[in-house]
Every structure is written in structure tokens, then in C-alpha cells.
Design a protein around this nucleic acid. Structure first.
Lengths: 223, 223
DNA sequence: AGCGACGTTCAGCGCCCGTTCAGGAGAGCG
DNA sequence: CGCTCTCCTGAACGGGCGCTGAACGTCGCT
């Protein structure tokens, strides 16, 4: 799956690229409208993430030009909440969906999945690792058949870890992946949530399902 | 089930496509009359949604041309309320039903179902989940065999939730799915309707059949 | 015209949840 | 064995999310 990200804010672009790459997508980034349009027309992408405020051609123009050229690649528009530019207008130019900043990564991922699913006609699949099961659509989780009572943030963190079971994720990676990209708190918050999750998902007599890798981060056990 | 949408307003076309795709239909979209007619004659569709005001050939002409060619695919005409073009006239040219904009998504879906049903000679299947039963055709609902007195909007919301029982639906998704596509109100209205529905459908001594998933939306219980 | 039903908005409230912080525990190292 | 750095965790707080009752406007019906 190839994704094109057209976004001039490097911080945001990098965060998105990092996240989607980790998710298995091939990600290309473009920092201005003209370059973005060029890539979009030249390359063949499954999805385009398009910022509205751009140097060169703005998002509307890029999207309109694409549609004009008969290119119907799904476009997800990223827009500032307080923008004087209107989201509805973006949909008029042929975008398929939009997202207001700041958004958290899980929200972005959900939208991306929804768009690709719509394009492909498939449904989201529950994820399993060991005796842990996660259903992203229903936002429910089970350990050994028993449902876990998780808060929204706890669920997001758990899903993030489960999807990358076996990999070591640094606290910063988890922060970038689960929290809004402009979150400016301490990585300690990750420790807090890992602690809570352990209390909720661990069998008290077995070893942790979320292992600490001292100095590096955390790893979700694969068995 | 394949549906062709001929509508030049991208916003409306996209909304319809999104909704019907989620409902399991295969949807193709055409933005002008000539292209629409071409697709309609070339492809084989179970239903055609046809806007009247179109660039190129207008809706009347498309419909008349289709019938002329001996194509009796069901046609549902979409017309602007204040249009100088007359709905009755559309029916004369061979359309099977018409709908004035703005329409809400449930109304559209109901008409689509009705047409397909009429074409196939089959009845719509009542939906059940737990001891809740919904008959979309009759627009009636029962809990444990007892009929519920629901208003139109209440029924729409309930049907939307029941059809996606087990999934978490955000307030925005529910808004998009139940209200007019140009509704510009607050998501709070969803809370209000969920509250009313709970009072009407819940057994006062059991847990809610519409569960709140804090920070994410609502989920219809599957048992 | 009057009335009632229905849809929508708004403000207030209660409480859950996310976040912070500080103190303690434990690993790693010399 | 003691030092340091990282990680863990319980407590506390503040905001925001969701719920509800009331009021208002509108539409349809009689």
C-alpha cells in the first residue's frame, strides 16, 4: 500500500510518515503543493493525505487538479480547526474525507483504514496475540476470553502495542503513535499507562505481557 | 448489488457513495449526464440514482434515453425541492421514484431498498439483535415482543445502531448516517436521542442496550 | 386558528479519565 | 556495597465528556 503525504509542516509529516511506515505502508512525503501534485500524477498511490495550507498550490487546487485529470485516488484532507478554509469545500473539490488538526494518530489510522477499506471493500479484522484479543471496530479487548474494562487511552495504547507485538517501542514512539502529535507532556505518561494496562491484562501469577526493556522501551510478548 | 449514482454535486455524490458502500452495495459514480448514460447502458446495474440537474444531458433525457433503449433498470430520481423541474414529469419519463433534496440518508436507503425489493419481488428482512426487532419496511420496532412507540428520528437512529450492532459508532458517524447531509448541528443531538432511546427500549433493571464508549462513541450491545 | 407532537438547542451538573508529581523500588555498574 | 539512573506507582487534581431537563421553534393535524 503506497501513501503520499503532502504536508509542509515537517514535524507533522515526519510523525505521519513514521507511523504509517511502521504500520506497513510505503510512505512518500511532499512539502509543497506543486511537488505534491506532480508526484500524485506521476506515481500511483493507494491514498493521498493532503494538507490544505500549502506553499505553492494549496490543497484545494491540488485536489481539484487531480480530479480534473481523472485521478480518483482516495484523498484524505488535513485541515486546521480554526482555518478560514472550509472543510465542506474540500469535499466539494473531490476529497473523500477530512480530519481537523490536531488529530491523534489512532484517529488518523482509523480514517486511513476506513478509506482504503471503502476502496477495497474489506472489513477490519480483530487482532490476536497469545491469549489477548483486540477488536478495533468494537473497541473491545479480551484476555483468555474475559473482557477487559479499558478506557479510551488504555485501549489505544494496548492496540498500538499489540499491533507491533515483539518489537521494542520506545516511550517516544508510543507517545507519537497514540497521543496527538502536538502533545507536550512527559514520557512518564507512557509508564503510567503501561502500569495500568499490566494491572488489567496481566495474569497476576505469570510474567508481564508488556515487558520492560530497560533503556529502550517496552515490548509486547508474542506468546 | 450494483448501484450507479449520477450526480454532479461531489459532496452529495460522495455522501451517497459512502453510505451505500458501507451498506454493502457496489457503488459507481458519474458526474455528468452523458457519462452517466454511457455507464448505464454499458454496465449492468441493479439501481440507478439520477440527479435531474446535470451538466451534459439532464436527468430527464438520461432516463428517457434508457427507457427508449429498452433498459428498465429501476431509476430513483433526486430533485431539488425548489427546482423548476417537476418531479411528476420525471415519473413520466420512466423513473420509478423520486426524492427531493435535501433528504436524510435513512430516507434514501429506505427508498433504495423499496425499489430493489419491488424489482426483486422480495421483502426486506427485519433485523434482530438480542430481544430487539426492527422492521425497516414497516418502520416498527419491538423489544421482547412489545412494540415500541418511536418517533421518526428515534427510529432512524435505532435502525442505524442495530444494523451495526457491536461496532463503535462515533457521534459524527451517526450524524452523517442519520441526519441530512447538510445538517450543521452539534453532535450533542446524538446524545439526546440516545438518551431518549434508552428510556424507551431499555429494560430499567438491565444494563443499557446502547452502551457508551467514552471518548469513542456508542455501541449497540449484541446480546 | 389552535393544539400537540416532534426536532433541536442550551445550560448545568456529575463524574470519569487523563495527566502530573513525588517518593520508592530495582537494575546496572564500579 | 553504595551510587546513580531508570522505571514504577499511589494520590490528587482539574478539565472535559456525556447526560438530562427545560425551553423554543416548527410542522402537521383537526
Amino acid at each position: 500500500m503506497k501513501v503520499l503525504v503532502v504536508e509542509d509542516d515537517r514535524k507533522i509529516a515526519t510523525a505521519i510518515q513514521r507511523g504509517l511506515t511502521a504500520e506497513g505502508f510505503t510512505v512518500e512525503v511532499s512539502f509543497d503543493g506543486d511537488d505534491g501534485l506532480w508526484r500524485a500524477t506521476e506515481g500511483s498511490y493507494d491514498l493521498i493525505l493532503l494538507d490544505l495550507m500549502l506553499p505553492g498550490r494549496n490543497g484545494y487546487q491540488v485536489c481539484a487538479a487531480l480530479r480534473e485529470a481523472g485521478d480518483w485516488t482516495p484523498v484524505l484532507v488535513l485541515t486546521a480547526k480554526d482555518g478560514d478554509l472550509d472543510e465542506a469545500e474540500a469535499l466539494d473539490t473531490g476529497a473523500d474525507d477530512y480530519l481537523t488538526k490536531p488529530f491523534s494518530y489512532p484517529v488518523l489510522l482509523a480514517r486511513v483504514r476506513a478509506l482504503l477499506r471503502r476502496a477495497a471493500g474489506r472489513d477490519p479484522v480483530p487482532v490476536e496475540v497469545g491469549d489477548l484479543r483486540i477488536d478495533p471496530g468494537a473497541r473491545r479487548a479480551w484476555r483468555a476470553g474475559e473482557e477487559l474494562a479499558l478506557t479510551a487511552r488504555e485501549f489505544d495504547v494496548l492496540e498500538f502495542l499489540v499491533r507491533r507485538a515483539g518489537q521494542v517501542l520506545s516511550k517516544d514512539e508510543i507517545l507519537a503513535g497514540v497521543w496527538d502529535y502536538d502533545f507536550e507532556g512527559e514520557p512518564n505518561i507512557v509508564e503510567v499507562y503501561v502500569g495500568r494496562l499490566r494491572r488489567k491484562v496481566d495474569d497476576p501469577f505469570a510474567r508481564h505481557t508488556i515487558e520492560t526493556v530497560r533503556g529502550a522501551g517496552y515490548r509486547m510478548a508474542t506468546t
